[in-house]
Design a protein around this nucleic acid. Structure first.
Lengths: 344, 344
DNA sequence: TATGAAATCGTAAACGTTTACGGAGTCCAA
DNA sequence: TTGGACTCCGTAAACGTTTACGATTTCATA
């Protein structure tokens, strides 16, 4: 069922059929109608390879997510709503979104090279950017439209949207200090993901603002999952003077952290204050409920999509131009995990 | 940087270049070497649209996952490891895997129709199959290679791999009965997903085996997330005679269920027995740890990939033929959530 | 009626591959 | 010297689209 079959069936030329289907102006409204109903009746769908080859564009956007060991068990629930948002924008422009999974046994940069080289996608959204992310320089030099979810320390100008981890650290520290805490630990990712650095910097700055000396012992590196949280709690318990509060950068860590404290007879929200990261159904139903930060992942996805489209020649005209370096604000959602504190 | 440029640069014909790159036999080993090094040096990557158009095959497999409201916050951590497994097999065959996200505002069947019609993928893995899944009959009639993760009640023969929810129900019921329980509730998905039916059937059968009368009141429908778990617990608490045990079909429900019971002063693992579904880092670090079922998602992914390849003409020869209707066994992992039971 | 513009459509080239086919060598045996 | 077998390579068609261009028709106007 190619366009040729359709044309034969209607006894008109394939050029006219193509123009009719693509909404070109120089075609009789009446024949256009005939073409459209015939296409629907015969179930004609244009072959994407053919049109891609001709137009040099695939109408497909790739969202690259890495299923690293660390995030394998936790990344999904974050990305799904983001996809939703991205897709809601793309649909209006007849763009398809595919998620590109880079396995753990392949280097993200070479994977990207293959995908881009094949002309598989017209644009990319990359996520989980590392401190110096080779993908960014690669995409810049190849002039592939992209937007990064998470900035990086890479030189050069490129569009990125990043969560305000510095703000998270500042808000959390200020709140905990206000509750009387002085010894505040943080759990940061063990990987090279850039958010860890941003978060840690924000933490230090916030401590300085409160006149608290920075103690490197309070920075606990761990994987961003339940087991990592368990280790963070263990690290806190092992210190001669246990921190009275902790800020986590991932909500899954909270579960393991709770667990470890329970085992030690310590009750989060009563004996130790916990601030988690992202508000979710999970954080709302934990016991104690987690004080954390709210973010509309769907809106984030929408913004990502718009940012990308504003850099793509075919869609630029519909979107405002200019640098895109956006720090996404988050709102603190009070929970029980840091409220029941009664002082040392 | 097309194959034509490469040929010009080497001063040989494009046909020879193509044959050299594709490992055809009728090419001088020496010139092949020249082609390969030049291709690498110039960074040539074949245009996928061109080859797809010519060969009628895209070398791409789609894994369709629906980001329904229900699973939006929980589906990810399940699929990531599965992707890993699938991809490990595909890589050997130079197949690319993309995740196809069907948004909540689009009908899965029409989405599938578009993707398939465009000749975007050579094969498909579909998941979250419903009771009567229109995608299955669609793919069957269009003769698109596919494998379903989760069987369906649809007539016709097609390859599927399904988790052994009947076995889960049987094992859990038998165990709980052995611990002295007679009034065992279950939490099943509120959606039309087929696993809910399978699970429920297994539950009924297991009750009959133990000589326990089936009470429809004990079947509690809810979303497969934390909030759903909360509602299941509420449902149990509301009954004149509260069930002494509950089996959940999703581990995220456990968190909300725990929450609700805590609020009522009831301790899971002491006052009520809970059996969850899938073993994960989460289930291991909950308090109490969840008695649940272990499954290697990576192996599941590998099996899915092999099943699909065995139905695709280009790869059939490498894989055993025959019907693929596989019930994937799961092993019970004892936790604390159903062990501390001391009887009524 | 002649003319030109507008509307509508057909023709053919082009996108980047792969591959069937045939041609040009080379080598060896008859 | 001829013929055949073999190796290697070039030629050109084909995949399904889109689109620039020109051809034809219609229609109003001079």
């Amino acid at each position: 069922m190619s366009i040729r079959d359709l044309a034969r069936h209607l006894d008109i030329s394939i050029g006219t059929v193509s123009r009719a289907l693509n909404g070109k102006s120089d075609v009789n409204p009446e024949t256009r109608e005939r073409v459209l109903v015939a296409a629907k009746k015969l179930g004609y769908v244009p072959n994407q390879s053919g049109r891609s080859l001709r137009q040099g564009t695939t109408n497909t956007i790739g969202f690259m997510i890495e299923s690293t060991i660390e995030s394998a068990d936790s990344g999904g629930n974050f990305f799904m709503p983001v996809f939703e948002g991205v897709q809601s924008v793309f649909r209006r422009h007849h763009l398809d979104l595919v998620a590109l999974l880079c396995g753990t046994d392949e280097d993200p940069a070479t994977y990207l090279n293959r995908v881009v080289g094949r002309r598989f996608v017209d644009g990319l959204i990359i996520s989980a950017t590392t401190r110096n992310d080779p993908r960014i320089s690669f995409l810049l030099e190849r002039k592939i439209p992209f937007v990064a979810l998470g900035r990086s320390a890479t030189r050069g100008s490129y569009p990125w949207i990043d969560l305000d981890f510095e703000g998270v650290a500042a808000t959390a520290v200020a709140r905990l200090v206000h509750f009387g805490h002085r010894r505040i630990a943080i759990g940061v990712p063990a990987s090279d993901i850039n958010l860890g650095y941003v978060f840690q910097d924000g933490y230090k700055r916030a401590l300085k603002m409160s006149g608290i000396h920075f103690d490197p012992e309070l920075v606990l590196r761990a994987h961003s999952n339940e087991e990592g949280g368990y280790q963070v709690a263990s690290g806190m318990l092992a210190q001669k003077q246990m921190p009275t509060a902790v800020i986590l950068v991932n909500e899954n860590m909270a579960i393991g952290l709770y667990r470890r404290f329970y085992e030690a007879g310590i009750h989060p929200g009563r004996d130790v204050a916990v601030v988690g990261f992202r508000e979710s159904t999970q954080s709302r139903f934990l016991s104690p409920t987690l004080t954390c930060f709210r973010i509309s992942l769907r809106d984030l996805g929408i913004k990502l999509a718009e940012a990308l489209l504003s850099t793509m020649p075919a869609f630029m005209s519909n979107y405002p131009q200019g640098r895109i370096e956006l720090v996404w604000p988050m709102e603190l959602v009070p929970g029980e995990s840091d409220r029941l504190w009664r002082g040392t």
